[in-house]
Design a protein around this nucleic acid. Structure first.
Length: 266
DNA sequence: ACCTAAACCTGGGCGC
DNA sequence: TGCGCCCAGGTTTAGG
């Protein structure tokens, strides 16, 4: 599932590949996955940016693309397989002869042509919280103390903290030694610090591994990430706690699969 | 304020 | 082998 490390991996790869390229056309194969005007010709790409799990491709004209991969989206550059693949939803043709493919089995995600991309980026920034390495410990503490919601629910709330999804929420709670069920406001200052360090650490590991390909995620070159080989607790039904060896518990929290050790996470 | 569920979709895994 | 069912979880929305 594309969370911050996955989307950032794609962003870095795309930035390297398509900045300076010119778009010569857009082919929409599935209307559901596309929105906006489709008169995208002679648009020079000057930037590839990310806010939380949202991606933005900026043109010199001030227009751009707003993209969200949701559950099963992929953005792949210059890969013949996607030319005829059944779930290729949108194709961006480039002047160099290469193409950028938006592929998505479940069609939750989208590519949207935006007339004023700078304003769109601001709009998304304003609706989302800060990112894990940008939020200060004081700001994070204040947000947690304001609510009695379960701490895992808060970690998944993009308007409070941007970029954390179910995989990294599960793993960082284990690294921090905090139960996903704790009311956010019950965390002591030291625990909030631990929590933030753990989120950053786990996301850093995810980034280093090129993201998690347990499910359908592949990077911009069509390659798997490796973080699924390093999962701490995520997805480990009847698995063992990596710290104490006890069997992990499984629950639904905020409607999401939740794996944790009720001995090590208090 | 908090919580849950449904909706958007499809493929894969499971039980029978 | 095959059919039907459930499940995965990012985001939005609706309702208790």
């Amino acid at each position: 599932v594309p969370e911050l490390p996955e989307v950032e991996t794609v962003r870095r790869q795309l930035a390297k590949e398509i900045i300076g390229e010119e778009i010569v056309g857009i082919e929409v194969r599935q209307e559901k996955c596309f929105a906006g005007k489709r008169n995208v010709v002679k648009e020079e790409i000057v930037g590839v940016n990310r806010v939380g799990k949202y991606l933005f491709v900026e043109f010199v004209s001030g227009r751009g693309l707003a993209i969200h991969l949701k559950m099963t989206g992929r953005l792949v550059i210059d890969n013949k397989w996607y030319e005829t693949a059944g779930h290729t939803r949108v194709v961006v043709r480039l002047a160099s002869g290469r193409s950028l493919y938006y592929w998505d089995t479940r069609m939750f995600g989208y590519v949207r042509v935006v007339e004023r991309i700078g304003e769109e980026i601001e709009r998304v920034k304003n609706k989302l919280g800060s990112e894990p390495w940008k939020i200060g410990e004081g700001e994070f503490l204040a947000k947690l103390q304001k609510t009695s919601r379960k701490v895992k629910d808060v970690l998944l709330d993009q308007s409070l903290l941007a970029g954390v999804g179910n995989i990294y929420a599960n793993d960082s709670l284990h690294v921090a030694g905090i139960s996903p069920l704790r009311p956010a406001r019950s965390l002591r200052v030291s625990e909030v610090g631990k929590m933030l360090v753990a989120i950053r650490e786990v996301m850093e590991r995810g980034l280093k591994a090129g993201g998690a390909s347990d499910n359908s995620y592949l990077d911009a070159y069509g390659k798997k990430g490796r973080y699924q080989d390093e999962f701490v607790v995520y997805g480990k039904t009847r698995g063992q706690c990596p710290s104490c060896g006890r069997e992990l518990k499984y629950l639904k929290v905020s409607g999401r699969g939740t794996w944790y050790c009720d001995y090590c996470q208090t």
